[in-house]
């Protein structure tokens, strides 16, 4: 619960509301919220829900940029509400909307069914290159082998990169930046042998070639993952798979 002791400062928080049972389309609703310098946008929304309007819906959990639940458009940019502070809007007003490019379920809550289905499709787990028995010991990995994929394993599925990707907005069939970062996290792991199985997705018409290297996905990532790099490295891999199959008769995609 945010500290309600009055500092005298007020923030005008404009929230894009949408209540499917009564609204034909979303509309902006403004709230005046007292705030102190240590309050995040998430705490501002919690103040609204607790004291001004209990009907406001939004997702949140950890309050510390770990769970990836509170992604929203803040003054038009995809941000985590818990990692964005009200003090950084000196004009005294801030506009908060549901993450761009996703259908709005209600208020600031988006529908992420599409993302979850795509996540399953890329087999987001290690498919061992070689089976080892317990007696043979663990799968060893050098620091250099770890370095190749480590940043991609920091993804928290917050979807900010999807809200930053116009190609996903224009064509929701595109697997998108976050899923490609996770796909690459496993493909690039020295213990993994599932790259050709995942190529069926990466090299498909819904795959990497929908990307036009806008690069904004990597700018907005709160965990310093570089999804644009994952997508574009896999363009090269998918092109290699495309042409090599003509020579070798192999290749993952259908």
């Amino acid at each position: 619960m945010a500290d309600t002791s009055d500092t005298g400062k007020r923030m005008r928080i404009e929230v894009l509301r949408y209540r499917p049972e009564q609204d034909a389309e979303p509309f902006l609703q403004g709230y005046d919220v007292p705030y102190s310098d240590d309050m995040s946008v998430l705490q501002g929304l919690q103040y609204i829900k607790d004291w001004l309007d209990g009907t406001l819906s939004f997702r949140w959990s950890c309050r510390m940029a770990i769970c990836g639940s509170c992604g929203m458009m803040i003054d038009g940019e995809p941000r985590l509400a818990c990692k964005t502070f009200l003090r950084d809007f000196p004009a005294g007003s801030v506009r908060v909307e549901a993450l761009a490019h996703f259908p709005i379920e209600r208020d600031l809550v988006i529908r992420m069914d599409d993302f979850l289905a795509k996540l399953e499709s890329i087999k987001p787990y290690i498919i061992p290159k070689e089976a080892r028995s317990l007696a043979q010991g663990e799968y060893l990995q050098t620091p250099a082998e770890l370095d190749v994929y480590e940043q991609f394993s920091s993804c928290i599925n917050c979807l900010l990169c999807y809200a930053a990707c116009p190609q996903y907005g224009l064509n929701p069939d595109f697997v998108g930046p976050g899923i490609m970062a996770l796909l690459h996290r496993y493909n690039a792991d020295s213990r993994d042998g599932g790259a050709s199985a995942r190529m069926e997705v990466a090299g498909s018409e819904a795959g990497v070639f929908n990307c036009t290297a806008v690069g904004y996905c990597s700018e907005v990532c709160p965990k310093h993952v570089d999804p644009a790099n994952a997508v574009n490295q896999n363009k090269t891999r998918a092109a290699g798979d495309y042409f090599l199959r003509l020579v070798t008769g192999k290749g993952g995609a259908k």
Binding site: A117, S204, A206, F209, A238, A239, Y242
Partner: peptide, 16 residues
């Protein structure tokens, strides 16, 4: 889940 679409021919044009 939707079936995975067929392989893209984009590599030819992307390469050029």
């Amino acid at each position: 889940m939707k079936p995975i679409p067929r392989r893209s021919n984009a590599p030819v044009f992307w390469g050029l």
